[in-house]
C-alpha cells in the first residue's frame, strides 16, 4: 500500500513532535486537567483526596467579591501591560545597536545578561537597597531635583512602579540575547543590497531588521506576556504584596490561597481565570500576527 503524500507528511510531523507530545501529555496536560477539575471544588490538600468537595461554580462567583482577587487582577494587568511593550522595544533597539554600532559586544551582552543569571534573591535585595532612603536610586532621584522622593517599596502608590522598573531592567538581558541569536542569522546579502541602494541606518532598521525579526518579537511578546502575568518571585521576596494590596499580584494570591489559606480549589479557579485572560491575549495576537509578522 502506498501512503498518500499528505498522510506521509502527517506521520513525519507527528514523529518529530512525539518526544515532546509524550512529555507534554504526562507532565503538563494531566496536572492541568486535574487543576481544572479541582477549580470546581473545595479542597484542602493537606486533608487528602477524600476531602475534595464539589461546590459547582461557587469559586468562580466568589472571587469577584474578593478584594484581594480584584486588586491582584488589576495590579497584574498594569504590570504586564507596562512591562511587556517596554521590554520588547528596549530590547530590540539595544540588540540592534549593540550588534551594529558597538565595540566590546561580548562583554556588554554578558553584562546585560547578568541580572538574569544572578541569584534572584541577590537581585531583589540589591533593589531593596537601591530603593531605600539612603540607596543610590533614591539619591539619583534627589539629584534630578525631587526634594522628597517617595519611600518606593514602602509607598502605596510607588511600590508597583518600583517593581516594574526592576523587572524591566533585570529582564532586558534575556530579550536582548534572544534577539541577538536571531540577528546572527540575518541574511547579509539583503543588507549589502540595501547598502548599495544607499539606504540609511534608520531605513534599514525599520524596513529590513524589524520585519525580519518579527517572528522573534512575536515569540518574545507572547512569552513575556505569559511570564509577566505570572510574576511571583520578586513580589514574594521584596514586598509580599504590600504595602496594603498595592503590589498584590495574581500568582502571589493564588499561592497564598493554596498554601496559606489551604484553599486549593479556590486557587485553581483563579488560575483558570488567569488562563482565560492569557488565552484570549494570545489568540488575539495569533490572529493579528498575519498583519505584522513576516516569515
Amino acid at each position: 500500500m502506498k501512503l498518500s503524500r499528505q498522510l506521509k507528511t502527517d506521520l513525519t510531523g507527528y514523529v518529530f513532535i512525539l518526544p515532546n507530545i509524550i512529555g507534554f501529555l504526562l507532565f503538563t496536560l494531566v496536572p492541568m486537567v486535574f487543576s481544572l477539575i479541582i477549580s470546581f471544588t473545595d479542597w484542602n490538600y493537606t486533608q487528602g483526596f477524600g476531602n475534595i468537595q464539589w461546590n459547582g461554580g461557587v469559586n468562580f462567583v466568589e472571587m469577584w467579591g474578593d478584594k484581594w482577587f480584584t486588586d491582584s487582577l488589576i495590579n497584574t494587568i498594569v504590570f504586564a501591560v507596562t512591562v511587556v511593550p517596554l521590554t520588547a522595544v528596549l530590547a530590540l533597539v539595544l540588540a540592534v545597536v549593540i550588534d551594529r554600532f558597538c565595540f566590546a559586544r561580548l562583554p556588554i551582552r554578558l553584562a546585560m545578561f547578568m541580572p538574569y543569571i544572578s541569584n534572584v534573591v541577590a537581585v531583589a535585595i540589591v533593589w531593596v537597597m537601591m530603593y531605600s532612603p539612603w540607596g543610590p536610586f533614591t539619591r539619583m532621584v534627589q539629584m534630578v531635583g525631587v526634594e522628597t522622593p517617595p519611600q518606593w517599596l514602602g509607598d502605596y502608590t510607588w511600590a508597583l512602579p518600583a517593581i516594574i522598573i526592576m523587572t524591566i531592567w533585570s529582564g532586558l538581558g534575556y530579550s536582548v540575547m534572544i534577539y541577538t541569536s536571531s540577528i546572527s542569522s540575518l541574511p547579509r546579502d539583503v543588507y549589502e543590497a540595501a547598502d548599495i541602494d544607499g539606504a540609511g541606518e534608520v531605513t534599514k532598521f525599520f524596513k529590513l531588521t524589524v520585519p525580519f525579526l518579527s517572528p522573534t518579537t512575536f515569540f518574545l511578546v507572547i512569552t513575556t506576556f505569559i511570564t509577566s502575568f505570572q510574576v511571583f518571585a520578586p513580589i514574594q521576596i521584596m514586598t509580599r504584596g504590600g504595602p496594603g494590596t498595592s503590589t498584590h499580584v495574581l500568582v502571589y494570591y493564588i499561592y497564598t490561597a493554596a498554601f496559606n489559606f489551604y484553599r486549593m480549589g479556590y486557587a485553581a479557579s483563579m488560575s483558570w481565570i488567569l488562563f482565560v485572560i492569557l488565552f484570549t491575549i494570545t489568540l488575539v495576537q495569533w490572529r493579528g500576527q498575519k498583519k505584522w509578522v513576516s516569515y
Partner: peptide, 25 residues
C-alpha cells in the same frame, strides 16, 4: 502536517496555568 496549529496552540495554552497550581497534582 494536519492539526499542527491546534496541537501547537494546545502547547502554548499549558504555559498559561501557573506552576504553583499544578505543583500538587
Amino acid at each position: 502536517f494536519r492539526g499542527r496549529t491546534a496541537v501547537f496552540f494546545l502547547y502554548l495554552a499549558t504555559m498559561m496555568i501557573p506552576p504553583q497550581v499544578t505543583l500538587i497534582p
